[in-house]
Design a protein around this nucleic acid. Structure first.
Length: 653
RNA sequence: GCCGUUGUAGCUCAGAGGUAGAGCACUUCCUUGGUAAGGAAGAGGUCACGGGUUCAAUUCCCGUCAACGGCUCCA
């Protein structure tokens, strides 16, 4: 080799000189042997590369280990290759799709042919993976020509890889090999399989090739691996913990809601405690909306089919939806309301509008029904009947940005009040590749999309942009929140719409005495009451802020002798608009406390001989224990203060 | 809708080709107890539903329904 030198700038800013052709592993070794043992990949000039890849020019350089996000994903990417190698060893002739790393682990899509693949076979695959890992097979990279790549996979008989190669430009194709496995891959990979010490194939699922429903469904194996056995154990325990926050479990335990096969799948039944929670949320929103200048309206649960033909919903969703309801005599067709906007458009049209009237803001807790695919239903987050905290703002074009900004404020206020700080503001735009999915003019789409992008930026929102996530009539700003298991759900949504006003021929008279078309903003800060409550349950693990808690107070008499006094306390609270229940069961106080704790009731009022005599209560707080003796009026004041604090988002005294 | 898994008491779960079991919850009785489970007795199941194989099926097979994990979809 030559004795040319290159300069690498390390993360601490220091510049080191190495021989041209140095690898990440060499660099690590020059720092410490321990570091070299842990290097998974490297980052050169911002690109993640193999730690075994030669570097031939000056640049910024960083070593990646398990502690780096990119180190982990390289590790998992290599693990996907390891799993593929195990699959080929165990199931000769298996065809491979794609196998990328994901947020937690990796997957590989495979075609087992006619073979039925069941979960019982997973342990066998895990074992094989570990066996191959122990061989410490080195990963190696080589560039191949398109012709050679095609030849290789034609020989191997893998149609999926051939399809992938067809889309790649000659000169950009590389193969990676480890042990007896070769894959089309741009890398990078870890030095050898020996780093992988623990593996678990978490689940199997069907997944359409290239995400297209019309393509063949492959078998997707999801897995996760770790460099230490203990970390796998910890991860699995973490998953178990997360499952305890599942709103379906807590909803059942706390008697918030239920489902009945007889009522129908995807149709939630709100039990009394859940209804209280929901009602409090609605009242909270009503109050905020009144302040923001909204008017509350009410519309029926069905509407003439014509209404939805006009809006475009029928054409878009009609065939795959709940089918029209007919009147017996005349055979008129009505649809179960899937959206509130058409109704609100007709309300707007109930009288002529002047530019001075705008904006008009119509809000409704509108219950809508949608035929969601059966495989999609999921607890309260995806249901067939749900209530949107919906509103439609009809405004002049010059008011769009200001109104949009105000809605963002409202959504942020709601999120802040309920402690949702971990959300992603997603700008949902058209997919330029599938224009047939959208209605409206190009010009209006551009205006609407730009309005959203500009206002979100002006508000200082950190946004991500997703193409193809727009509604069919307009772009959206969606507030995405994760559930206990890390799945993303859309809660709040704001949409700018120039299309429906056209379709419904909405008008107002301008200062010029001419007719103009208003712009609509659709918005729902919660999204739906169902989904919002679900996510609220998971984020609080059922320990709701005091103001929302369905059962705020349990009055616990020491024995039957104090039932009378306990009920006096209950009535006293009632007179102050505070709800509390007396636990009159024939149980000892320890038991009553335990049960109230399990039900996550924020306050327990314990009353016995001392309290009855001195007209006081002994206060106990959920999760904290005894916090002292209060007179009735002292407690009412204290409780009021705590409610206010919880509304302001403060945790405790 | 598609792929995979599951379905036994109100809940959490055992069980096995010969018509079912535990803990908690529930009911009754005893107990009147001071800050996270007092004691005893009792009641409770068409083993998701519909077929088939078998002398016999809740158990094995097929279908349906529902739930769960994904894919696709998400106004």
């Amino acid at each position: 080799m030559s004795n040319e030198k290159i300069k690498l700038t390390l993360p601490d800013g220091s510049v080191r000189e190495y021989d041209k052709g140095v690898t990440g592993l060499d660099v690590a070794m020059s720092i410490s042997e321990g570091l070299a043992r842990n290097v998974l990949a490297a980052k050169f000039n911002g690109n993640v590369i193999d730690a075994f890849r030669a570097i031939t020019e000056d640049g910024t350089f960083q070593l990646l280990t398990w502690n780096d996000k990119e180190g982990k994903s390289t590790f998992w990417h290599s693990s996907a290759h390891l799993m593929a190698e195990a699959l080929e060893a165990l199931y000769p002739g298996v065809k491979l799709g794609i196998g990328p790393p994901i947020e937690n682990g990796f997957y590989y899509d495979v075609d087992f042919g006619d073979r039925e693949f069941t979960a019982a076979e997973l342990p066998k695959i895990e074992e094989k993976m570990l066996e191959l890992a122990r061989q410490k097979n080195a990963f190696s990279r080589r560039d191949v020509s398109k012709k050679d790549a095609v030849a290789y996979f034609e020989e191997k008989g893998d149609p999926y890889k051939l399809e992938l190669i067809a889309d790649l430009a000659d000169g950009t194709i590389s193969f990676y090999e480890q042990g007896n496995f070769t894959d089309l891959c741009r890398g990078p990979h870890i030095p050898n399989t020996g780093f992988i010490k623990a593996t678990k194939i978490l689940n199997i699922a069907g997944a359409y090739w290239r995400g297209n429903e019309k393509n063949k469904q492959l078998t997707r194996l999801y897995g996760i691996t770790f460099p230490k056995q203990g970390e796998l154990k910890e991860y699995l325990e973490l998953l178990e913990e997360a499952k305890k926050r599942d709103h379906r479990k807590i909803g059942k335990e706390l008697e918030l809601f239920t489902f009945s096969e007889k009522v129908g799948k995807g149709l939630p039944l709100w039990l009394p405690k859940g209804a209280i929670l929901r009602e409090r949320l609605e009242n909270f929103m009503r109050k905020a909306q009144v302040k923001a200048g909204y008017d509350q309206v009410v519309s029926p649960h069905i509407g003439s089919k014509e209404l939805y033909v006009t809006s475009g919903h029928y054409e878009k969703y009609g065939k795959d939806s709940f089918q029209p309801i007919n009147t017996p005599e005349e055979g008129e067709e009505f649809l179960l309301k899937p959206m509130n906007c058409p109704h609100h458009c007709e309300m707007y049209k109930s009288k002529p509008r002047s530019y001075k009237d705008l904006p008009v803001r119509y809000a409704e807790f509108g219950t809508v029904y949608r035929y969601e695919q059966s495989g999609e239903l999921h607890g309260l987050t995806r249901v067939r009947g749900f209530t949107q905290d919906d509103a439609h703002i009809f405004c002049r074009p010059d008011q769009v940005k200001e109104e949009f900004a105000k809605v963002i404020d409202l959504v942020l206020y709601v999120f802040k009040s309920l402690g949702f700080s971990d959300y992603n503001a997603q700008v949902s735009l058209r997919d330029p590749e599938t224009p047939e999915k959208y209605i409206g003019t190009e010009e209006n789409w551009v205006i609407a999309e730009n309005a959203i992008i500009e206002v979100a930026a002006a508000k200082g929102l950190k946004t991500t942009v997703e193409l193809g996530e727009a509604a069919f009539y307009g772009p959206k700003l969606d507030f995405m929140v994760k559930d206990a298991l890390g799945r993303n759900w859309q809660l709040g949504t704001i949409q700018v719409d120039y299309t429906l006003p056209d379709r419904f021929e909405l008008e107002y008279v301008g200062a010029d005495n001419q007719k103009h078309r208003p712009v609509m903003i659709h918005r729902a800060p919660f999204g739906s009451m169902e989904r919002f409550v679900a996510i609220l349950i998971e984020s609080t693990a059922g320990e709701f802020p005091l103001w929302l808690s369905p059962e705020q107070i349990a009055i616990l008499p020491i024995s039957e002798k104090f039932h009378d006094y306990a009920n006096q306390v209950r009535l006293m609270l009632q007179e102050n608009d505070i709800r509390g229940n007396v636990d009159e069961r024939d149980e000892k106080i320890g038991r009553k406390i335990r049960d109230a704790e399990i039900k996550k009731i924020p306050f327990m009022l314990i009353v016995g001989e001392k309290e009855a005599e001195s007209k006081t209560i002994a206060l106990r707080e959920h999760g904290k224990g005894d916090i002292g003796t209060f007179s009735g009026s002292e407690f009412v004041d204290y409780f009021g203060k705590r409610i206010k604090m919880s509304l302001a988002g403060e945790k405790e005294a």
